[in-house]
Every structure is written in structure tokens, then in C-alpha cells.
Design a protein around this nucleic acid. Structure first.
Lengths: 214, 214
DNA sequence: GGGGTTTCAGAACGCACGGTCTGATTTTAG
DNA sequence: CTAAAATCAGACCGTGCGTTCTGAAACCCC
């Protein structure tokens, strides 16, 4: 029984040819099933049995690939947010000017949410609902670092006069709130059209920061 | 054993003099205890036993005043949002011009969240986490009507040229997102200072809507 | 002060869930 | 082909919860 910790740096695939294959396939399958389950019945009804049903696996077999339900859900969350972060980072890195970087950030963020709405919605549902053993919610623990990029963009923009000066924490929170609204929309209706929202979000936040509209 | 459905239209108070008193006191006590419990341990750890402990009541006695746990939590939610709605409505009704009305709306909203942060945070936690028997979350069901006032302000402002034209749904969602950010802040830290946020929120949304800053 | 009602506390029940155990079946390797 | 390992499925167990049951105080009106 092996689980977790997919691979150490030097990992000869020779001695684990197909088992490693089936294991990664099962993990992928289970994470996808968990996404579907959480989106359909919500976090606190997403039991292992329900997740397994959608993956065509009995719940006891899940323990073979994930050490616990929490490990499965947390991997789902990490995967979804990592992908979002990479999308945004890639889009931003092509620009120098603060306004352009913010525009790229927002557009990439919304595009990613639009394209990966199921994974994002499930991850947010989990982050909001899940509690560790001592009762602390996830969205309270993880908050630094995630906003680092946005914070640096806004700080730079304020220093070079592109944006109005205001407390960085406030500005970051406001911009994030507007962008996160897209997530709320797809949570409410998984088939919602984000076209209008995506078209107006960037001008909206640029105006709010005191930058030129276009 | 009576619970729920406070009163039919013609309900002589003569035959329920002191029992009604103790009953309302207990209900108040239990709702307050539920707020504290949800804020301290989160929704899904807020058991009836835990709520009762904070109210000095055994869980079995709770059923005497609330027909179910769900009824208790839903009354908490309704009470908190009704109070918020009344605060905002009272503040807005004193103004005619759209910009002034929006400013009053936002300031009253944030002031109420600041002053009643515990009740608001608990209500939001419940709305986000609670699922009915068929699995539908609360924040999906209740969405009309709550935004009616804000929508009417924004619509009027756009028609009379105070705000830039954009889809009303998008504009409402954005403004709400910025205001709701205050709730997220107090959820993360119940003792957070909302001063900076309150000071910048109104100019922020007014700029974003294309209205003059001051 | 006694009968009925209201109020409450503790015990007990039923249920759902996560996790584990026990075999059976399949896959892999020599 | 066969033995060992991997994989899987159903049954089982412990826990925590909401709810209900049982009975005992407290209170009220006469």
C-alpha cells in the first residue's frame, strides 16, 4: 500500500512500470470524481462512498491511493489553486507596466476560472467548508503568498503613479473581491456565461484604482 | 410544546402572559449562543450540545423552543440579514440622487457589518455551509430581493447618467463583492479594524462606476 | 396543597460517516 | 504455470450527531 508523495527526484520507472501508471490514473480519477461530487452535493455530503460511486470504486479502495479523505480533498484544492496561480503568473510575466500587468492578471484569472470552473468551484467549496481537527478553516490559514503577486503589482503601480495610493491590504482585498465574484457566479450556476463579467471586470477595477480606463 | 410560527393574526396575548416571556428569552438566548458557537468552532462543529452548553441548556431542551437545529440556524440567518437590510434601507431613504444613495447604502452596509460583525459572520458562515435535505445550499436559493435595493440604485444612476452604463447584474455583483469583502475580513479576524476599508470603499466603488470621486 | 401544565435534564435510539478488516480476484514475475 | 504481490469489494466498527423518550422538578391556577 503506497500513497501520497508521488515521486522522489530520482525515481526509476523501470521497477514500477504499470502499477505507477494505474496508481496515477486512479488518483486522477478520484480527484475528478471528488470535484464532481463536491459540485453536485456540496462539501459536507461528499462522502467517500459518494466519491467512490462516481469513480466506479468502492470507498474502501480509496484508502489505497489516498491516506484519508482529507488528503484527497486537500490535493484537489492544491491542484486547482496551483493551476490558477500558474495561469496568472504566465500571463503577467509578459508585461512590465503596472496597468498592463494588472490587466493581464485579471484577464488570465477570469479566463482560468471560466475554463476550469468545476475544479475551481469545488476547491473553493472545500476551502470554505473544511475544518482541520482543531476547527480552524482553510481559508483562514492560507492567505499570504497567494496574494503576493497581486500585491506587488498594485504596490508598484502606486509607487509609479499609475494607481491611486491607498492601503495595499485594502486595495488587494477589493480587487480580489471583484475577481472572486466570478467564482461565486459559477458556483451559483455552473453553466453561467461569464462573458459580460469578463468584459467589464478589467475596466471596472482599473477605474476603481484611478487608472485610465483604456 | 409550541414552537415556530410566532403568531396568527388574531392571537390574544391574554392567555400567554409569562410563558411567552420565558420562551422569547430562551429563543434570544439560544440564537445568541448559536452565533457564538458558529463563530468559535465553525458551522459543522456547531452541534446542538455545543450551542446548548453556551446557553446553559441541555441539547434536548432546545427542541422545546426550536423544532429543529435547522430552524434555529435559519432564524439566526434571517434575523441578521433582516437587520442589515433595515439599516441600509433606512440610510438610503434619506437621499434622492443616485450617487448619494449609493454612498449611503455602502456606508450603512459597512457600518452595520462593523457593528454587528458577530451576527453577520455567523449568518454568512451558515448560509455558505448549510445544505437543505436535497443538498441545495442556502446562498443559491436566496438571491433575488436582497439585491433589489442596490439594483434599483444602480439602474437609476445609469439612466440619469451618474454611473457608466453596464449590465446591471454585473454592476450589482461587483459592488456587492466589494462590500462583502468587509464580511470576509471580520470572518478572518473578528477583531479586525475596518477603518481603512470603510474609508476607501465608497470612493473605490464610485470611481469604478464612473461617478465623480467626491 | 393538589392536579395539570410547562420546563428541563439525562438516557437511549437511529443514522451516517470515515476508517479498517477480511477475503476474493486480478495482475505481475520467475 | 504458479506463487506472490497488488488491487478491489463487501462487511464491520467506533464515533458523533440530531432527535426522541422518560421522568422529574418548577410553576400556575383553584
Amino acid at each position: 500500500m503506497r500513497s501520497e508523495t508521488p515521486a522522489s527526484p530520482g525515481d526509476p520507472p523501470a521497477e514500477t512500470p504499470s502499477r505507477s501508471f494505474i496508481e496515477t490514473a486512479r488518483r486522477r480519477q478520484l480527484i475528478d470524481a471528488a470535484v464532481a461530487t463536491v459540485n453536485e452535493v456540496g462539501y459536507h455530503r461528499a462522502s467517500l462512498a459518494e466519491i467512490g460511486k462516481r469513480a466506479g470504486i468502492v470507498k474502501s479502495a480509496i484508502g489505497y491511493y489516498f491516506s484519508s479523505k482529507e488528503a484527497l480533498l486537500l490535493e484537489l484544492v492544491q491542484e486547482a489553486f496551483t493551476a490558477l496561480g500558474e495561469s496568472v503568473l504566465g500571463a503577467v510575466s509578459g508585461h512590465e507596466q503596472a496597468t498592463a500587468r494588472l490587466r493581464a492578471y485579471a484577464e488570465a484569472y477570469l479566463a482560468h476560472v471560466d475554463a476550469h470552473r468545476h475544479a475551481i468551484a469545488a476547491a473553493v467549496e472545500i476551502v470554505v467548508s473544511h475544518r482541520t481537527a482543531d476547527g480552524t478553516p482553510l481559508y483562514l490559514v492560507e492567505n499570504e503568498e497567494d496574494t503576493a503577486l497581486l500585491r506587488s503589482i498594485l504596490t508598484a503601480g502606486m509607487e509609479q503613479g499609475s494607481f491611486l495610493r491607498m492601503p495595499i491590504k485594502v486595495a488587494t482585498g477589493f480587487v480580489e473581491s471583484v475577481l472572486d465574484h466570478a467564482i461565486t457566479v459559477v458556483q451559483r450556476d455552473p453553466r453561467a456565461d461569464l462573458g459580460d463579467l469578463r468584459a467589464h471586470a478589467v475596466p471596472f477595477v482599473l477605474r476603481s484604482l484611478g487608472a485610465g480606463d483604456e
